[in-house]
Amino acid sequence: MSQPKEIFVRTDRCVGCRSCITACAVEHSASKTLFGAIAETPRPKSRVYVEWVAPDHKVPLVCRHCEDAPCMHACISGAIHRDADGVVRTDADKCIGCWTCVMVCPYGVIGRHLEEHKAYRCDRCPDREIPACVDACPTGALVYQTVPAYSGAARQHASRELVQAEGG
């Protein structure tokens, strides 16, 4: 079984430009263009968030699509399921807007669609090879990789640091 890709966040790289937020909303618009999206009603919703932690940390957050997803277990209407690609999805038709998923989500990345009275979240951009937020990030703070590739790169980095510390 091949390794699925995840959206990883390198918090040290985020400059808080919110480009990911804009790109996400545009991707979830009808026109799929910025100039078209801003004129749409209801306004398209972004599913990625950028938090600020004093004094100077900016932290992009997006649905982790947890393997053991609390939202999926907690959903009382059975609206949340995991698809074949491992993406946790909310079926809008089944969602009753009870916000239980919001209560149990440890990342706080599920939104409330006021016009549609439904919960919404990252859908990993099914029409795109690379999610829009990752594509838009100008600093590489968002990375779309498999766990082995991401952790492999982290190991490489750690190894280099170690060698350097040992005087290599």
């Binding site: 919110r18 937020i21 804009t22 909303a25 910025l34 999206a37 801003i38 306004r43 919703k45 939104g111």
Partner: peptide, 10 residues
């Protein structure tokens, strides 16, 4: 400063 073009955000 920058204004969010999408109402619920920012």
């Amino acid at each position: 400063c920058r204004i969010s073009p999408f109402e619920d955000e920012g």
